[in-house]
Structure formats: C-alpha cells, structure tokens
Amino acid sequence: MMTLEEKQQEIIGEFQIFDDWMDKYEYIIDLGKELPLIDKDKKTDDRLIRGCQSNVWLDATVENGKMKFTSDADAIITKGIIGLLIRVLNNETPESVAKADLHFIKTIGLQEHLSPTRANGLLSMVQKMKMTALLNLDNNA
C-alpha cells in the first residue's frame, strides 16, 4: 500500500507529461467525470460547502481507523481536483489526514484552486476533511 507521500509523488509524475495547460485540464476534467460520487441521500445541506463560484458536497467517515471520503461538486473541474484530493487522503488514518501537507497541488500548478480568493469551496473542503480527522483524533484519545 502506498503512503500518502507516495500517492502525491505518483500524481506529480502523472502531471509531468503535460506541457500544455489545456491538456492538463483535459485530464482533470476526465478525473472529474470518474469521481466516485457521494450517495444521493447524503447530498444534504449539512454536507454542502458553499463556494462563491461552485458548491461542494463532502461526506467524511472513519471505518476501521481509516478515513473514507465521498464527494460531489457542481463544476467538473472542481470535481477533478476533489478526485485528486480524495485519492491522496482516502484510507489514511485521521492522524495523517490532519497532518497532511498537500504539496502536490502546488507542484502540479493547481494552487490557485485552493486559494481563499477562488472561493470554489475547495479550500473549505480540505479544511472540513482535516477538521473531521481532528475530531476523530479527539474521539480516539
């Protein structure tokens, strides 16, 4: 099983082949189409993260000490980036999710999507992922 860091390195490797922004986004859009969607009955207001530009739904649970995330968004590029975040953070312990430095986002050139000004719900989503992880840390303690 890959570590959180190995998963980040794998994504960085995948993105290295793109020298054109549009190719990169074509790949993100494809990832967005493949995102394992949150169950319809879980698309509730308490799982909704409202962004200024697009909305994100996130369900975060802990099963056997590992975190499980499912999500959806109304914009496909947002979904693609969520797909990457979930790929890195899924099946990790609450501790490693809470501590995770998601440096791959910057390396592959998508940091603008996690900047506070973008307001697409992604930054809030990462915060919610980490918050849920922290809450579960406390519960285990």
């Binding site: 922004w21 549009m22 986004y25 200024c52 530009q53 914009a75 590029i77 947002t78």
Partner: peptide
Amino acid sequence: NIHPFDIGTLLDKQGIAVRTGH
C-alpha cells in the same frame, strides 16, 4: 449542463479574462 466556473477556468488558461459566477 456546463458550470460557468468550468468555462471561466478554461478560458483563463487560454489567456482570456472573463468573470464567472453571480
């Protein structure tokens, strides 16, 4: 069936500044 944010993001990457959202 296409979110404005997606179009705006792709236009940006083609060097075109538009506004998306409300």
